[in-house]
């Protein structure tokens, strides 16, 4: 009973906030609605028994990606009036595309229900290990069967990171970065000197 209630709560909120993402006039509000949508999606994942995916969704999308997104959107200087004008102008086109996509979905699912699309049975390759917990099962697959692909994907991310740095990093000669170890090596006797200057003579530094 509670699960059914929770499902409808999460599902309704997810759809509602997704609608508000595109309907709200302020882009910052849009991002915040998007975060709410992610959150409800995570809730649905928990209900589906995929708690690991749910937590990843929150950590990665809500905790990292959306923060950076919010960061950028907050810094933008946007003319809201102009934005709205564009929305009204493109609204029919957007609706048309949405309708086409909807129709395709309906046709596709309809055809499948009618039996004219012969999909392969789900999980035709192997049965999922049911006994282990979520994380254990994913770990088994990622570090066992798909080890090679997993590690290669890591290299892809590394390449992307190196690429981003190569394309944007510029060595500036005019900065004076702090050298912590140099500062730590410095001793009082290197920097100070005791003197007993004669009156009226001044000090030679």
């Amino acid at each position: 009973m509670i699960q059914v209630l929770a499902f409808y709560l999460f599902a309704t909120l997810a759809i509602l906030s997704a609608v508000l993402v595109i309907m709200s006039r302020n882009p910052v509000h849009s991002v915040l609605w998007l975060i709410l949508a992610f959150f409800n999606a995570a809730g649905l994942m928990v209900l589906a028994g995929a708690e690991f995916i749910a937590m990843l969704l929150v950590i990665v999308y809500v905790g990292a990606v959306a923060v950076l997104f919010l960061f950028v959107v907050m810094m933008l200087d946007i003319d809201f009036a102009e934005l709205r004008a564009g929305f009204v102008r493109n609204f029919p086109l957007g609706m048309l595309i949405a309708l086409v996509l909807l129709a395709e979905l309906v046709f596709g699912i309809g055809a499948w229900r009618a039996g004219s699309i012969d999909l392969a049975p789900a999980g035709a390759t192997e049965a999922a290990p049911m006994a282990a917990s979520n994380i254990a099962a994913i770990g088994q697959v990622l570090y066992g069967k798909y080890l090679f692909l997993f590690e290669s994907a890591g290299i892809i991310l590394l390449v992307a990171m190196v690429g981003a740095i190569v394309l944007t990093h510029r060595d500036r000669k005019d900065t004076r970065p702090q050298n912590i170890s140099k500062q730590n090596r410095r001793r009082p006797q290197d920097a100070t000197v005791n003197m007993r200057p004669e009156i009226g003579e001044g000090v030679q530094l």
Partner: peptide
């Protein structure tokens, strides 16, 4: 970067699975 591009192309030609294909292709492309 060139070594990694070559690595990606090497994975492409050795692919025996659609996922390996894609991983190699993306490594090379990026």
């Amino acid at each position: 970067l060139l070594v990694f591009a070559v690595l990606g192309t090497g994975i492409m030609v050795s692919a025996g699975d659609l996922m390996t294909l894609y991983i190699g292709l993306e490594m090379n492309s990026l």
